[in-house]
């Protein structure tokens, strides 16, 4: 027997707001388009990102090479597509790793309290003392230069932000009457934590992920720019900007401009989404129901 489940009013109200917010819809559509192009890049464009054509070095944008070529004659469009995949993909990994690590530690600290909470708070405070780039550099020094080391460093730096907000939210929600009421009916701590507290944290986590994504992509690019991230010949937006800037003075502007533009657009769009989402998904769990 199929039971028609009425959609909760929150969801209806939210959908209505989402539909009426053109900026948000535009930004989400733009991000979806970028993601699609980046993922489908190899099928859309026939050049190999690492194939050097020494007959066409530093060629200006043309029909054959829409974004021009670099000093080794590599097609810039292919490299930008490839680089965006590296940068945005690594950014996504940082976001997911940070969210998982941060949620687990945040739930532990908030639910258990006591020594666990003290230890985790102390640890995350120590991590937050360092700027993200410094921490990533330290990890790169300890391991070896390259994307994986940078991703690890940035993930370590991003999880305390999740942990702190989640810890606070767990403590706030745990003191609410509906949690006490669930305790009073005899539910296990696990059920209370995962069925009653965690669902209220999802909006907080998503919000944090959107906020961290832009910053992570930029930090990755900065590490690439400093030569500690992606190593040649890997295409990565930050490293491409570094390599390209030396040609700015000699007039080959496209080498740095196009990777920079893609980075700018992607980060701006995620920032807009994060900003709008903050208004929609009120992290305090109180809902604005527009009637």
């Amino acid at each position: 027997m199929a039971v028609a489940v009425a959609e909760p009013r929150i969801a209806v109200a939210r959908r209505r707001i989402v539909q009426s917010d053109r900026v948000l819809v535009g930004a989400l559509a733009g991000l979806a388009l970028i993601a699609l192009i980046v993922v489908a890049g190899p099928f859309l464009w026939h050049y190999d990102a690492n194939a050097a054509d020494l007959t066409a070095q530093l060629a200006a944008p043309s029909a054959d090479h829409p974004l021009g070529t670099d000093n080794l004659g590599r097609d810039l469009l292919a490299r930008v597509l490839d680089g965006a995949r590296t940068s945005l993909g690594a950014g996504a990994v940082v976001v997911v790793a940070g969210a998982v690590l941060g949620s687990v530690t945040g739930l532990l600290a908030g639910a258990l309290g006591g020594m666990v909470d003290t230890a985790l708070t102390w640890l995350t405070n120590s991590i937050l003392c360092f700027p993200s780039i410094m921490l990533a550099m330290a990890v790169v020094m300890a391991l070896k230069p390259g994307i994986p080391a940078v991703v690890i460093g940035l993930s370590i730096h991003s999880f305390p932000w999740y942990m702190r907000t989640i810890r606070g939210e767990v403590m706030r929600i745990a003191a609410l009457d509906f949690v006490k009421s669930t305790n009073a009916i005899g539910a296990t701590q696990g059920r209370i934590l995962f069925r009653h507290i965690f669902p209220h944290l999802i909006s907080t986590i998503v919000l944090q992920m959107a906020a961290v994504f832009g910053a992570s992509v930029l930090s990755l690019a900065a590490m690439g720019f400093l030569g500690m991230g992606a190593q040649p010949p890997t295409a990565e937006l930050g490293a491409m900007i570094t390599e390209g800037q030396q040609f700015f003075l000699t007039g080959q502007w496209w080498l740095a401009a196009f990777p920079g533009l893609v980075l700018l657009i992607a980060v701006t769009l995620t920032t807009i989404v994060a900003d709008r989402a903050r208004e929609l998904l009120d992290p305090r769990g109180e809902y604005i129901v527009a009637d």
């Binding site: 909760p8 609410l176 009457d177 509906f178 005899g186 296990t188 669902p199």
Partner: peptide, 21 residues
Amino acid sequence: RRLRSRMQIVFQDPYGSLDPR
């Protein structure tokens, strides 16, 4: 937890005591 099925509570605030989700 098992005994709780035999003793229950109704809270003061009917807005806070029901999980909004």
